[in-house]
Amino acid sequence: MPSFDPFFSDLFGYAAGILTTVAFLPQVIKTYASRSARDISLSMYVIFTIGILLWLAHGLLAGSGPVVAANSVGLVLSLSMVVMKVVFGRGKR
């Protein structure tokens, strides 16, 4: 396997992390603004949150800054969706 400069590897990692993490921001903003999570799948976000926790643990164990940074922010966004789904879904049936 070819060897890559760690700077460029981290640069690509941070760029990928920023794009994939920011992709969830519009949904978080829309859900918060509308106070409705009716069409949001709770099971999808719970499974996704567990996956992010595992990626975060992997990044911490591997010492990967891009993985830790992206998944720390992603965890906050994902947990906020889980909380909004539970809170905004109360009493609406």
Results as ranks from 00 to 15, higher is better:
3 S>P: 00
4 F>H: 12
5 D>W: 04
5 D>K: 07
5 D>T: 10
6 P>F: 06
7 F>K: 14
7 F>A: 14
7 F>H: 11
9 S>P: 01
10 D>R: 05
10 D>A: 12
10 D>N: 13
11 L>M: 14
12 F>P: 00
13 G>W: 08
14 Y>R: 00
14 Y>H: 10
15 A>F: 05
15 A>E: 01
17 G>I: 09
17 G>E: 01
18 I>D: 01
19 L>E: 04
20 T>H: 00
20 T>C: 12
20 T>A: 10
20 T>W: 00
20 T>N: 07
21 T>S: 12
21 T>E: 06
22 V>Q: 04
23 A>T: 14
23 A>Q: 07
24 F>L: 13
24 F>P: 00
24 F>A: 08
26 P>W: 13
27 Q>S: 11
27 Q>Y: 07
29 I>H: 04
29 I>W: 13
30 K>G: 10
32 Y>P: 01
33 A>M: 14
33 A>F: 00
33 A>K: 15
34 S>K: 13
35 R>H: 14
35 R>Q: 14
35 R>S: 11
36 S>E: 04
36 S>A: 15
37 A>S: 15
37 A>F: 02
38 R>W: 01
38 R>H: 11
39 D>W: 06
39 D>C: 08
39 D>R: 06
40 I>Q: 07
41 S>E: 09
41 S>F: 10
42 L>S: 05
43 S>Q: 09
44 M>H: 05
45 Y>G: 00
46 V>C: 11
48 F>S: 06
49 T>A: 12
49 T>N: 13
50 I>C: 14
50 I>P: 02
51 G>S: 13
53 L>G: 14
53 L>W: 05
54 L>P: 06
55 W>M: 10
55 W>E: 02
56 L>Y: 02
56 L>W: 04
56 L>E: 06
56 L>I: 08
58 H>D: 00
59 G>K: 07
60 L>M: 15
61 L>E: 02
61 L>Y: 10
61 L>G: 09
61 L>K: 06
62 A>S: 12
62 A>Y: 05
64 S>T: 12
66 P>F: 04
66 P>C: 10
67 V>E: 05
68 V>E: 03
68 V>C: 03
68 V>T: 07
69 A>G: 02
69 A>H: 06
70 A>Q: 01
70 A>H: 00
70 A>Y: 00
71 N>K: 11
71 N>H: 11
72 S>W: 03
72 S>Q: 04
73 V>L: 14
73 V>M: 08
74 G>V: 09
74 G>E: 04
75 L>T: 05
75 L>F: 12
75 L>A: 12
77 L>F: 15
78 S>H: 08
79 L>F: 08
80 S>G: 11
80 S>I: 07
81 M>Y: 00
81 M>F: 02
81 M>V: 10
82 V>F: 03
82 V>H: 02
83 V>D: 03
83 V>E: 04
84 M>W: 01
84 M>V: 04
86 V>A: 03
86 V>E: 00
88 F>Q: 06
89 G>L: 11
92 K>T: 12
92 K>Y: 08
